[in-house]
């Protein structure tokens, strides 16, 4: 239980241990710890940045989607309007065409009526002439009576 030279020996050992720890053990380990701390901090910062970036991208995407929806709605509206217009236009055209065709048909009918009248007139004249010939049963000088025939035939034509 006495203090003796062991004390000095122990002090030397202690000094050596502390020196060795200070020089070769503490620095590399604490450096590794600091480095890892820095790495983790960086990683966390990067993750946060990524999160922010993603949020921004999502916002941008939704904005774009909204714009696209609006645009497509506009386009659909426009197309519907245009379709209505086209329908109206074709209706009008069809009506015009119909009217025109009716007009043409009427004109033709009238023309044909006129034609038929003319034909009828001539035929009645001829018939009248023949009838007159037979009634008279006499040779009639055509040249002498041409005036009367023409007169009759024109009167017939007017009837």
């Amino acid at each position: 239980m006495s203090i003796n030279a062991t004390l000095i020996g122990q002090m030397i050992t202690f000094t050596l241990l502390v020196w060795f720890t200070m020089k070769y053990i503490w620095p590399p380990l604490i450096t590794a710890l600091e480095e890892r701390r820095a790495k983790i901090a960086d990683g966390l910062a990067a993750a946060e940045k990524g999160q922010e970036e993603m949020e921004r991208a999502e916002k941008r995407a939704s904005e774009k989607l909204k714009a696209a929806k609006e645009q497509s709605a506009d386009i659909i509206n426009l197309a519907q309007k245009r379709a209505n217009e086209v329908v109206e236009e074709s209706k009008a055209n069809a009506k015009k065409e119909g009217d025109r065709m009716i007009e043409a048909a009427k004109a033709q009918i009238e023309q044909e009526i006129a034609q038929v009248k003319e034909n009828l007139r001539q035929e009645v004249a001829t018939l009248a002439l023949k009838a007159a010939e037979q009634i008279l049963q006499k040779e009639i000088n055509k040249a002498e009576h041409n005036d009367i025939i023409a007169k009759v035939s024109s009167q017939l034509g007017q009837a």
Binding site: M1, I3, N4, T6, M11, T13, F14
Partner: peptide
Amino acid sequence: TDLNATFAMSIS
């Protein structure tokens, strides 16, 4: 349990 050891450290 040796005073020399503990004192060596504390005196250092």
